[in-house]
Design a protein around this nucleic acid. Structure first.
Lengths: 122, 122
DNA sequence: CCTTATCGTCTACATCTGTAATCAATACGA
DNA sequence: TCGTATTGATTACAGATGTAGACGATAAGG
């Protein structure tokens, strides 16, 4: 069980999940499209993620190449599970019902869900 | 758009969503089943929720009766939406797929989802 | 060889969060 | 009436978080 990853740290993880290994400068460059951070900020977040054992760094000459240590799927499953536990007592259908009620569910979503359920039952 | 409600604050909101209005002592008593907090801690959280305009307090003699200002449904929809945006690009079926893949989806869940989808299409 | 750009590390600092202690006012019980 | 329990308000304080600046080492360019 890994430590909690903060919002800002998550943005860094997202970049590394998309492509790794990357140098700090690479990460900063890719993040710049989303957030207005300086290189220093990105470096701080990388160190904190190292401290949390969420990423690892392999030395490459004078700099480091960073890569994720925790799998995106694991993280995603953990976060989803936590939210569903907290808000819906661990059950998924109330979430879907909730989204439907708030009109946050498109016909496409519904079709996809149906297809998925058919597959799950197979 | 309300400010972010922290984990600890959420526990207080949960109590007030279940039953309101309540005094600080009432809230503390109900929360005691879940968390090992002193009355002071609960009072601090209540003040912070007041500052965030998440709850309101009506004076009742010497004490206050607290009640939620934001609806549980709104909060839940906001949090779910945020998570789904962040982790799944705003689409719900990858979430369900994810849960299924991690074996976090019981046959009951699947049945409920099917029923719900039938209803949504009706 | 000397300057400059770049790297990682250390330090900073305000705000938020978790978790209270203390305090002053007041109501209640003996 | 007098001590005590209760209430809200104020203050505390360590750790997490967002957002960097400063610094010393070093590589690269001229």
């Amino acid at each position: 069980m890994h430590e909690k990853i903060s919002d800002a740290e998550y943005a860094v993880m997202a970049v590394l999940w998309e492509r790794a290994p990357l140098t700090a400068a690479d990460v900063a460059e890719r993040i710049a499209e989303e957030r207005d951070w300086t290189l220093q900020t990105v470096k701080t977040l990388l160190s904190r993620l190292m401290a949390k054992d969420a990423i690892a760094a392999d030395q490459d000459g004078r700099r480091f190449l960073y890569r994720p240590l925790i799998a995106r799927d694991d993280y995603v499953a953990g976060e989803s599970g936590r939210l569903i536990d907290r808000l819906f007592g661990g059950r998924i259908s109330p979430l879907v019902a909730q989204l439907a009620q708030q009109d946050q569910l498109s016909p496409d979503d519904i079709a996809e869900l149906e297809a998925l359920l058919r597959e799950l039952k197979a």
